[in-house]
């Protein structure tokens, strides 16, 4: 899949400001970013639900604007919001979906049964979807998106609303798919765990792709460890740290963050230098969230977590 200079406006608001990226076959690619960062817009464009105001998208050599049907055939889509008919049974949902893709009869039935078995849904095949738990419904969504053997699977926030156990199961199923069927997976997420498990991650912020690479690469760019300092007077300490150590501490949600090789030594130096002012110091290997903060100066969850106190 190739995306070139993709941009999109809603009226005067710019949702995507020129996105370019390439995703190769068999890759698991994650689009990470906060809500409102452009993920959903990009997802809608890639899944052929919406046309972009400008730019080019090619999937398996087909142009998204001129040949949407050629792409739709290869595309499996799992939406953030449920797309199952709750009045139909699990099997009926899969069959209905297969019919839309021109499959039918025994071939379709066998394929649907195999999928349900693989996703541990075979016992619920003849239950109506409205009687299923949230986690099971997500798995039926996945099964549905796979009925027509897509080559590219698009998932919008696939694990939102799942408990950690169900989320792990879901991710394992995706891994299996790639191994066994060579399916390319593109997913959007704001869950770090999920992004960490992708082959490559693109970070979307305000409609721009601010970083692109493997999770390890992205973290390695920060150079060493991340030290987080809680202080009585973070603004004052920010200035003092800058003067004393020549570093550039970022103030995020009331705590100071410094990226620094050999973080453990730096922790001791800070505590020795400003004994009365430091409330707590932690250090750790950088996560993708640290990458995000480094690039944007904001937390991934900013609005949702709290108004600015320590997080």
């Amino acid at each position: 899949m190739e995306v070139e200079g993709l941009h999109h406006h809603y009226g005067s608001r710019e949702a995507l400001a020129g996105i370019s990226l390439e995703i190769s076959r068999g890759e698991i690619f994650g689009l990470l970013g906060p809500n409102g960062g452009g993920k959903t817009t990009l997802f809608k464009i890639l899944s052929t639900l919406m046309s972009a105001t400008g730019g080019i998208v090619r999937v398996f050599g087909h142009d998204l604007v001129r040949e949407p049907d050629a792409i739709r055939r290869h595309l499996g889509v799992v939406f953030q919001h449920p797309s199952l008919d709750s009045k139909l049974t699990v099997m009926e949902n899969l069959q209905h979906h297969g019919h839309l893709y021109g499959l039918r009869g025994t071939a379709l039935h066998t394929r649907a049964e195999a999928l349900l078995e693989r996703l541990d849904l075979d016992e619920r095949a003849h239950d109506r979807v409205e009687t299923l738990s949230g986690g099971l419904r997500r798995r039926v969504e996945l099964a549905k998106a796979l009925v027509h053997q897509p080559d590219l699977l698009l998932l919008d926030e696939p694990s939102s609303g799942l408990d950690p156990g169900a989320r792990r199961d879901f991710t394992n199923h995706l891994g299996q798919l790639r191994e066994q069927d060579g399916v390319t997976v593109v997913l959007t997420t704001h869950i770090l765990d999920e992004a960490e498990r992708c082959d490559r991650v693109g970070i979307l912020h305000r409609g721009k792709l601010v970083a692109l690479g493997t999770p390890d690469d992205l973290k390695a760019r920060l150079g060493g460890d991340v030290v987080v300092v809680q202080a009585m007077n973070p603004h004052g300490l920010q200035v003092k740290l800058r003067e004393r150590f020549g570093c550039e501490p970022a103030l995020v949600d009331g705590s100071l963050r410094v990226e620094r090789p050999r973080g453990h030594e730096f922790v001791r130096e800070i505590v020795d230098a400003f004994p009365g002012e430091v409330q707590s110091v932690t250090f750790g290997k950088p996560t993708l969230e640290d990458v995000f903060i480094h690039l944007t100066g904001r937390r991934l969850w900013g609005e949702e977590m709290n108004g600015g106190g320590a997080a």
């Binding site: 899944s47 052929t48 939406f79 919001h81 797309s83 199952l84 979906h97």
Partner: peptide, 13 residues
């Protein structure tokens, strides 16, 4: 509203 239509709209129909 319930989302079922999205699945139909991305199918090659």
């Amino acid at each position: 509203r319930e989302g079922f239509l999205q699945g139909v709209l991305v199918a090659p129909v």
